[in-house]
Amino acid sequence: MAEIQQQADSGKGGKKRAKKMSTKIDMTPMVDLAFLLLTFFMLTTTFAKPSAMQISMPVKPKPEDEQTELKASLAFTVLLGENNKLYYYEGLLDQSVKPELKASDYSANGIRKVLLERRARQPETVVLIKPEDKSNYKNMVDILDEMTITSQKKYALVDITKEDSDLIKSSGL
């Protein structure tokens, strides 16, 4: 606590002066209280919980002879390009048929609108997501978020083919 110390009389004669009092404050109880409060608030605070996106992992692949072919009418291909660019086309890329490549973006009026319109027309759509080597990770996460937002039941991350890369280069978009 606090205590007051009095100075002894110096023994000189003359005028009587008021005695000087010095104070000494013991800080130990205040430090104890500060640590108790700090400990209390640290233990009672809820920390931010990490948020994780749910992703369904595929089952073991079937042997080649048991796999079913994907129909071109059910396929919808999304190509992730460099510099945050996004391209898509309907169907599968075939030697005989060159699909019409369209550009879009990651906004609500971009790929989300296209995916919702496609799902309304063809509920069994399978979306093939093909990121280029120069596309960034954020774009892949964004397109996976769009799959969740638009409630796509079937989608797959697939390696981009040389034909898809050539289609992007030749399109001029």
Rank of each mutant, 00 (worst) to 15 (best):
V126K: 07
E124P: 04
V114L: 08
V141F: 15
A120S: 12
L128D: 00
L115R: 07
R118G: 04
E117W: 14
E124L: 11
S107V: 07
L115P: 01
I111R: 02
D105M: 06
S104W: 12
T125G: 06
L116M: 12
P123D: 00
D105L: 07
E117Y: 04
M140W: 13
K130L: 05
L116D: 04
T125V: 13
N139M: 01
K113E: 13
I111H: 06
A120Q: 11
E124W: 09
I143C: 04
K113R: 11
V114A: 11
R118I: 10
R118V: 01
L144Q: 09
Y106A: 13
R119M: 01
E146I: 03
N139A: 09
E132L: 10
E117A: 10
P131E: 02
Y106L: 11
N136G: 13
L128C: 05
L144I: 04
R112I: 09
R112D: 15
E117D: 05
S135Y: 06
V126H: 00
L116S: 06
Y137M: 14
L116C: 07
S104H: 13
E132V: 07
R112V: 03
N136Y: 07
E146T: 01
T125W: 06
D133F: 14
S135H: 03
L128K: 03
Y106F: 14
K130I: 01
S107L: 12
A108C: 10
N139W: 10
N139L: 03
L116F: 14
N139K: 12
D142K: 15
V141L: 13
D105E: 06
E124S: 12
Q122I: 00
P123N: 00
L128S: 01
L144R: 06
L128H: 00
R118K: 15
P123M: 05
R112K: 15
E132R: 15
L128A: 02
L144H: 03
K113M: 11
L128Q: 02
V127H: 00
E117R: 11
D133V: 02
D145M: 14
V114R: 11
T125A: 05
I143G: 01
